[in-house]
């Protein structure tokens, strides 16, 4: 089981990071989702693998029986999934909006936040505009 999990984590991280490097924002977002899955698997694996019984205390007992799985990573993953979902949806909404404003989801076309420095009548001349990719 261990090699399967660790290889999956490695594979997901590799794909996720590769997607992060894309210009296309939806791809970056998918990369984030994959990377997040890798992280969740890591937390799952860090709670030790192998135990398969659900972590419920039997009626009458006051502790978990032997062989039950570790409940803490499951709780952590549940929280992380919820938060990751929220973040993804928000980022997605922003990408949708950017698409409407800029008619593009290519990172290179989004340049409204870093317009050339406004140097009107300032003591130094404005810097030469950087060579931009033809739109």
């Amino acid at each position: 089981m261990d090699p399967v999990i660790s290889l999956s984590i490695g594979g997901l991280v590799a794909v996720g990071v590769y997607m992060f490097l894309a210009h296309d924002l939806p791809r970056v977002l998918i990369g984030f989702v994959l990377f997040g899955s890798a992280v969740n698997l890591t937390i799952f694996a860090s709670g030790r693998l192998g135990a398969t019984l659900p972590p419920f205390v039997a009626p009458g007992a006051d502790a978990l029986a032997a062989g039950t799985s570790n409940p803490l990573p499951q709780a952590l993953i549940l929280t992380a999934i919820v938060i990751g979902f929220g973040l993804t949806v928000f980022a997605l909404m922003l990408v949708v909006r950017a698409n409407r404003e800029f008619s593009s989801v290519d990172a290179a076309d989004l340049n409204a936040a870093e317009t050339p420095i406004d140097t009107a009548k300032s003591p130094i001349p404005p810097p030469a505009p950087l060579a931009k990719k033809a739109a």
């Binding site: 929220g86 949806v89 997605l92």
Partner: peptide, 16 residues
């Protein structure tokens, strides 16, 4: 509330 907020606003975003 959260599911409704997210889904409805995404839906309206699409049809705008």
């Amino acid at each position: 509330g959260t599911v409704a907020t997210l889904f409805l606003s995404l839906m309206e975003e699409e049809t705008l």
